[in-house]
Nucleic acid binder design. Structure first.
Lengths: 136, 136
DNA sequence: CTGTGTGCAAACTCTTTGCATAAGT
DNA sequence: ACTTATGCAAAGAGTTTGCACACAG
């Protein structure tokens, strides 16, 4: 994914391709699937020489999420992770390191799900497999 | 579950059965399975005439969770839910109302889960089925 | 030019902590 | 008495918002 495609991505989503959005998009979408917090992205952006404020990081991540370019994953209390893989998939969460990873399996499925209550429909199913360090 | 059993529950967990812990325990454990935030419990406690501070609510919920009397569920960004049902089960989350519910099904299961990465073992599997209001 | 986006700081929400007082054993 | 809990207020993390300035179309 190059800068061109990102510009198109943004336009398609109705966002103006500003300097910051292009650069953040590049960091997010040009390095495979990523799971990142606002804070991590902020550090990474500054390190890459991009003059961007934390507020803009948040605004941008939220806009990307609304536009369906990102998916937000809640793992615990405070911080949110943003996942660049928006397709249907599930996660491992390494509790000791606070690291989120995709579960690499197409076979994983849920069975026996009852019909949702009246007047509601299933929006999304989130699965988080919490991993602990194994005692050796 | 009566006040007696709660006192025992607390002692067994190595906690002194103080006024606040007993009363909060009563609110939590004497009304079936509950999914409640610290804030909600605070309001409920004050309404019930219990003089308790929000800090104590948090301390108590965290202690109960550590002792295995409660289970913490992360659904989105900021607030944490505490679930009085500590057995293995999954949740519906009504996004519009911010309401968490147990999924009433023993048949629900996950299949095709790959072996976790080396050096780790599965601690817990959280499943949240997010429900939207159905368009009629 | 016109309107949207950005930076900064301040506000806000949820949660934790420090310290003096109160309560449990 | 001795020790642990509690209340309060203040601090802390993560996130959002308001407003003036800057940039894209």
């Amino acid at each position: 994914m190059d800068r061109q495609s990102i510009e198109k991505k943004l336009r398609d989503a109705g966002m103006r391709p500003t300097r910051q959005r292009l650069s953040l998009g590049e960091l997010l979408f040009c390095h495979g699937d990523r799971h990142i917090t606002a804070d991590q992205l902020y550090v990474e952006a500054r390190r890459a020489g991009l003059a961007v404020s934390l507020a803009t990081i948040y605004n941008t991540l939220n806009q990307f999420t609304e536009a369906g370019l990102l998916r937000e994953v809640a793992v615990e209390g405070q911080k949110s992770y943003f996942d660049t893989n928006t397709s249907n998939h599930y996660h491992y969460y390494l509790q000791d390191e606070g690291k989120l990873m995709d579960i690499d399996s197409k076979e994983l499925s849920v069975s026996g799900l009852p019909k949702p209550p009246d007047g509601t429909k299933i929006g999304r199913i989130d699965i988080i497999v919490r991993l602990d360090k194994e005692a050796l």
